[in-house]
Design a protein around this nucleic acid. Structure first.
Lengths: 339, 339
DNA sequence: CTGAAAGCGCTTACAG
DNA sequence: CTGAAAGCGCTTACAG
């Protein structure tokens, strides 16, 4: 099979201990021995087994990542950032795409444990009782990225969703809109579900605008549900002049639905999205959106996780990590002159 | 630290051998012992170390995947399919997003070797001499998915790109187009670079149409390059009535460029894409595209790789694996009545 | 500075 | 059916 440390030792005429020492860059190896060892490594094409190393060092350099849907631009962008940060810190990623399948998540968490990953990143909010129990006694640092599930005490890397949604709604109000619809998210998630909804509602009421339930729907953050929810809104007696969707995907779905109904964005209905994903620049008209610092969130997630790992539970981040949001106006909203 | 097999054995009052046996589902263990062991496992929350197992079994159940750009819908879709197939066969993914960085690829291949992955999937064509040499003597099955780099003899899972590009071009010709532009790919890739270009050219010449180099550009498959290449084409004296881009991303970039120049798709210029990614249904007008069976390609890639793994080099796939393509007409092309 | 030996947490012949 | 022992490929005290 593959060449092992013993083969290198034999070829170099030294002990495996010595080979191990030059492998790990220890000093106290005479130069000529070091030279012989390195030459043997070179000639044999020796690459040490991380498996064996992990067994003795108890370090796997592995981080397990659970992604709800890797084909979503938002998640794949965070993931690419996570990957980059992890990689540059010497960590590798075990990636699990659960696509709504809770059983798969449980299976994967077990695999993560078998593989002795040093930390886990979770990016979805559908945490049930069984999973909560499991990760609680897992004895491995867990961090949530971009979500904050209910009833659990792990750190989340998020933005101030309430404030962000409030400001996004105010943007529309500032443009003169008074009939503003809403396509929300999952209420099992505190921030992207509940807080964004509260932000929307409070912005309206603070500005003396009525909350019209006919214009309010809840989706699953994906394009199709944005489309479907928008269609329901379009069936109403009176139409809103603007819609705020809490993900860019849903906003694009809504835009497409409006387009397919022969209405114009922003001529007939303005649309605001949320996330600031690449989609915003991909569609026409370009989508105005409340931007999350997606890429930065990925690196902060890994950075914090690495601190948790090296501190072995002693590190206190001081609770959730709140990143800065920023509204980016593009071409999907218009000013209402005569409401 | 974590509980190990010895702890279970002690608690159950048996030898570690016996625990190992019930763990691995061997028969020849008396029911009452099995019961005691399982109870001990349960009570201790024992999960065996895959690291230790791998060391003795020489099986890691790991597949290394190199993706050029995980944020691209095309690649993330293949990846999700790869993940699903691997997972359901008991394999886990070590994912590397190289984002154009050849050095990173080399680093990752080394890590793959250290981790003793059982197989490797590569999804990009920029294989240089150093990398070629490395994977050739890696002694691990390698398979290329959706690409076929030059000068290497590993299996690729691809479609008949020549024929597909030919048919896509013919679709436009069939609609009456005579001035058909082309936004191509990377010539280092035989199929998606060279063959698609040949398919386009031969379709034109077979139908007595002229090849106009003013309308031909080459990009990197991404949205931005589609946009940029289209802008160059739009600068020409005479405009084509249609453009065929060899990726949906570039086609969307081209559509956006046309839109930003106040021209209509398909009114002024028809656009055909390639891949059949989710983007085709996301944009308006919906993009007509030559569809690759993306999801199936992912599962076939893993399926073939697993055969290569279990056959230990004895399995002969009979060369590249050619999947079926299919043109899907949507709304981005119009019929030319008076050319 | 260098090496023999023990040990990381498992599995697998080999005996019984 | 069950267990003691060797071994997977490394690292790390411990001696020298």
């Amino acid at each position: 099979m593959a060449v092992k440390i013993k083969d290198v030792a034999k070829k170099a005429g030294v002990s495996v201990t010595t080979v191990s020492r030059v492998l790990n860059g220890e000093k106290y190896v005479k130069d000529d021995l070091k030279l012989r060892v390195n030459r043997a490594i070179e000639e044999l094409g020796y690459v040490p087994s991380q498996i064996a190393r992990s067994l003795v060092s108890r370090k796997t350099n592995l981080i397990g990542v659970i992604v709800p849907d890797i084909t979503s631009n938002f998640y794949s962008t965070i993931l690419s950032s996570i990957e980059e940060t992890a990689s540059s810190n010497g960590y590798n990623l075990l990636v699990c795409n659960i696509s709504e399948d809770i059983d798969k998540e449980f299976k994967y968490l077990t695999i993560f444990k078998e593989m002795r990953v040093e930390g886990i990143v979770i990016m979805h909010e559908k945490i049930n009782e069984e999973i909560r129990t499991f990760i609680n006694k897992l004895n491995v640092p867990v961090i949530f990225s971009s979500v904050k599930p209910m009833d659990q005490e792990f750190i989340s890397v998020i933005i101030d969703d309430y404030q962000a949604a409030y400001e996004a709604t105010e943007h529309l109000i500032g443009l003169g809109h008074e009939r503003i619809g809403f396509i929300g998210g999952d209420m099992r998630d505190i921030t992207s579900g509940q807080n964004r909804y509260s932000g929307y509602r409070n912005a309206l009421t603070d500005h003396k605008l009525k909350i019209v339930y006919e214009w309010i729907r809840f989706g699953d953050y994906k394009v199709q549900s944005g489309y479907d929810m928008m269609r329901e809104i379009l069936r109403g007696k009176q139409l809103p002049t603007a819609v705020f969707a809490v993900s860019d995907d849903m906003a694009v779905g809504a835009m497409n639905c409006i387009y397919d109904h022969k209405l114009q964005v922003p001529g007939d209905i303005s649309v605001v999205g949320f996330d600031g994903s690449q989609l915003t620049e991909l569609v026409r008209p370009r989508l105005s959106s409340m931007e999350q610092p997606i890429y930065e969130m990925g690196s902060v997630t890994v950075g914090t996780l690495l601190k948790l790992i090296s501190a072995e539970g002693e590190y206190d981040s001081g609770g959730d990590i709140i990143m800065k949001h920023r509204f980016i106006a593009r071409d999907s909203c218009r000013r209402i002159v005569n409401p």
